[in-house]
Design a protein around this nucleic acid. Structure first.
Lengths: 348, 348
DNA sequence: ATGAAAGCGCTAACAA
DNA sequence: TTGTTAGCGCTTTCAT
């Protein structure tokens, strides 16, 4: 098999100069050519099966039409929709995403960041940010365009797209309070991760707004956004705060762990304890019981992040934006009135 | 901010010639240099924050250290583990994966294939293959290294890594038969997809080997490997074959649809109908009831596919291999003895 | 052990 | 409207 055809090959076949062929092949510059030249060159390209060598182009233009995406872990069901949202938004612009998993490990994150830099990415979308992430400084010093998605970093030096966590937690708590719950715990996510911190802070605020006391609304920290961590947190919670009748979980994985631990200890959900998740990740509706949760538009978040990044690549001086997308409570089977309230209802 | 440093910048700082600097920076050629020169250059590179420009390198070497991965849909829980397996296997070799979603659409598949070609990928891993996929011819004509994962294409012209579907179905049926089931249906996947065809064929074989008749073991085709399709298939199945007591689903998504349809029609699982899934995808254990299924080592499949591809890139004449990884039945709550058999058991 | 020089395929400034 | 030319940053053969 012979080597891949180049512009020169196409030019020879179309009987024009290399640069003419190159112009004909590039939509941006084909306007300055006579229509018949353009079509002749294009036909020659088609016949030869020509595809442009993006390395040569990238070397010349110093743009790769590639962006780097850093996520914690692709097998965490939260991220595939974000990634697809990014990919779909990039597609019409001819951009491609390079995806790397950090596993929440700063070392891995840093090495992937450098590797992506070597591949000349035009910018980054970071879904793995931790508070005070060193990446921020590095990207800022380099002047590399960067957009944060889902998680933020504390200092607003880059544009960010997320869900409206504050509102989501408020609505979740409103739902529980409306059902009659007054003893509501929060199974918070890990320290140093913005979504965990923001949701925990929002829990505190909302609970106060509802007129509940701190004693009625304990917060238990889970050390990761995982099922296991949710189970352990639930175990501890049940031991230290046995009177709670409802739980707002930091995310759906923690909620699932909670559901499992509840079942393991013989507590029925929602009869004994109501549980609200967060994210409405795939299969949250298939759990037992089907999880009441806050739906976050992950694909849209990814798409918006991509758009913001493209905007910044085109216009590096563009203003920094924080985009909070609306979330929505999805009520399913894991929440109900607390036992006492149900009893009162029956008496009324 | 100034432009990114190049080898020349490093060379200047280290007071050596560009080519010497390049050699020092490249592990393959740094051996021919004096140790002190190497370390001097490396230090200069570090101080400057130098990263090699992979476009220039790729243009020169005609190798991109990038491979293209075509999957149907990243949000299908089957694929993230495969992709991660691929990524982890590539990482130590300095390779990166470019991932594209085909949505099972031949047009999208073709256009992504060409786009990846333009990005000079050194090879492809295809998880989206359909039988008689035109990609096969194109890749063969181009001489592009390619490995199939999960699905095959009918003709064995490329190496392929999959799970041992034949054995998986056999074991699933053995489990059901051992429980006492004699009327077992198969909710098969869509035509033209190898995993669907192979599992359906294996179902026919295994059922015969068990001494069951065709009348006892109906096969219902679902038109996609999706929940909805599984629900519809189950609906039809229950209407036409009301005596069945067990179902072997073509995959877990179909099984989930089946579980839902069963519940919707008031049939209890496993009490009235046992269900076995296929894949053991994430959260299969969180369904209600927890799904008995055949575990397929997806991450390992991805990793093996990557290894095979790297091998072929290094040695284009390498022999074509078909690697079938062992699968394993995971018994959970969705399977039990049929009602009659349970009754006999009680009488015995 | 190191330096010199060419060239990968493309684009874009300049010339005609 | 089309041709000429230089050069992006790297690797690599050849020379020293």
């Amino acid at each position: 098999m012979s080597r891949r055809p180049t512009v020169s090959d196409v030019a020879d076949r179309a009987q024009v100069h290399r640069s003419t062929a190159a112009r004909a092949l590039n939509p941006a510059s084909s306007g300055m050519l006579s229509p018949e030249t353009v079509s002749r060159v294009r036909r020659a390209a088609r016949e030869l099966g020509y595809t442009t060598n993006s390395f040569a182009r990238g070397l010349r233009t110093a743009r790769s039409s590639t962006i780097g995406v850093l996520i914690p872990d692709l097998t965490n069901p939260l991220f595939p929709p974000i990634v697809r949202g990014i990919q779909e938004a990039l597609l019409p612009h001819g951009y491609t995403a390079l995806i790397a998993n950090t596993d929440n490990d700063p070392g891995r994150e840093a090495s992937h960041f450098e590797a992506l830099l070597a591949r000349q990415v035009d910018g980054f979308i970071i879904a793995s940010a931790r508070e005070n992430d060193p990446l921020i400084d590095r990207a800022e010093r380099l002047g590399t365009p960067m957009v944060l998605v889902n998680r933020s970093t504390g200092h607003g030096r880059f544009s960010m797209v997320g869900g409206d966590d504050r509102d989501g937690i408020r609505v979740a708590l409103g739902h529980l309070a409306g059902l009659g719950h007054t003893r509501i715990a929060h199974l918070a996510g890990p320290r140093g991760v913005s979504t965990a911190e923001i949701r925990a802070a929002a829990f505190r605020e909302s609970v106060t707004a509802l007129g509940l006391t701190l004693a009625q609304t304990p917060v238990m920290r889970c050390d990761a956004f995982t099922e296991d961590s949710g189970s352990r947190g639930t175990h501890q919670l049940l031991a230290s705060e046995p009177e709670i009748t409802a739980v707002v979980a930091g995310n759906d994985l923690i909620a699932l762990g909670c559901l499992r631990q509840l079942a393991a200890q013989g507590a029925r959900c929602p009869h004994d304890v109501s549980v609200v998740g967060y994210n409405d990740m795939r299969f949250a509706d298939a759990f037992s019981p089907a999880l009441t949760t806050v739906r976050v538009p992950h694909a849209a978040m990814g798409a918006e992040a991509a758009r913001l990044l493209l905007e910044r690549i085109a216009e590096p001086a563009a203003v920094i934006k924080t985009l909070l997308l609306p979330v929505e409570l999805v009520v399913r089977e894991s929440t109900a009135a607390p036992r006492e309230a149900a009893a009162w209802g029956a008496w009324a």
